[in-house]
């Protein structure tokens, strides 16, 4: 598949992921955000130039735009890493890459710097918090790529699957543990009600899970030829025997 087509599929898959994020936001997270905003306003804070209604609509638009941008990055990485990704077809490769992106890009950084609802956080430290968060995402992504490369390097040297998986995953765990222990703790005290904060954090994890699941699934589905999707064509009969989609490269 040409890179242009790959990018279009990525943008479409990411738009789907953005809709999934927005749906999670509307269905599961909206209450927590609104409750937090009310608390914030009751405490004399908040109250920006836009009404809640405008913010909610812009929140949906923003989530979809975010999804499209994420999908485009996903597509470029997929194109570059395709021959190194596990899985015998593009469906499996896409799901693997999306799962790795969820863990490295959201789950690991969120363990150290968990998301907070509106009203939590000192504006004076937001620059520092943003920088730490972005740095930890970068570190986590590099550690994940490094572990995957270690696995593939060992495979090329003929190391058996069990020891090389253990080595690669072990190296990843050590790197992530060192980062989680070594990065400075989040600077702000969280004074919002614990239940509200907990519910909010769970919904954010759910939102990213939904975004990556839909992005990975839609991209994988669109990457397959129609025959591969149903398994009814010649290609489907040959499943497991070879990569049928590489002929289009």
């Amino acid at each position: 598949m040409s890179l242009g087509r790959c990018l279009r599929l990525g943008a479409a898959a990411g738009a789907g992921g953005g809709v999934a994020l927005a749906l999670t936001l509307a269905v599961l997270g909206g209450a927590a955000i609104s409750e937090a905003v009310e608390l914030e306003e009751a405490a004399g804070g908040g109250g920006g130039p836009f009404s809640r209604g405008v913010q909610q609509v812009a929140g949906v638009v923003g989530a979809v735009a975010l999804g499209v941008a994420v999908g485009v990055v996903f597509a470029v990485v997929f194109a570059a890493a395709r021959h190194r990704l596990p899985g015998r077809d593009d469906w499996r490769r896409s799901l693997w890459l999306a799962a790795a992106a969820f863990v490295a890009g959201h789950l690991v950084p969120a363990l150290k710097y968990p998301p907070n609802p509106p009203g939590v956080g000192d504006p004076a430290t937001v620059g520092r918090r943003t920088a730490l968060y972005v740095l930890l995402i970068a570190f986590s992504v590099v550690a994940t790529v490094g572990a995957a490369r270690l696995n593939n390097w060992l495979a090329a040297r003929g190391t058996a699957p069990a020891p090389r998986h253990l080595l690669a995953v072990g190296a990843w765990v050590v790197l992530v543990a060192v980062a989680l222990a070594g990065f400075p703790p989040p600077p702000d005290a969280v004074e919002a009600p614990a239940t509200l904060v907990w519910n909010f954090r769970l919904t954010v994890v759910g939102g990213w899970l939904a975004l990556w699941a839909v992005t990975g699934a839609v991209f994988g589905w669109l990457s397959l030829s129609p025959a591969d999707r149903t398994g009814r064509g010649d290609a489907g009969a040959a499943e497991g025997a070879g990569d049928t989609s590489s002929r289009s490269d």
């Binding site: 927005a22 999670t24 936001l25 949906v60 989530a63 968990p114 998301p115 509106p118 954010v204 990213w208």
Partner: peptide, 8 residues
Amino acid sequence: HDARHFAG
């Protein structure tokens, strides 16, 4: 605002 908070 809402999209940002939801992105965590």
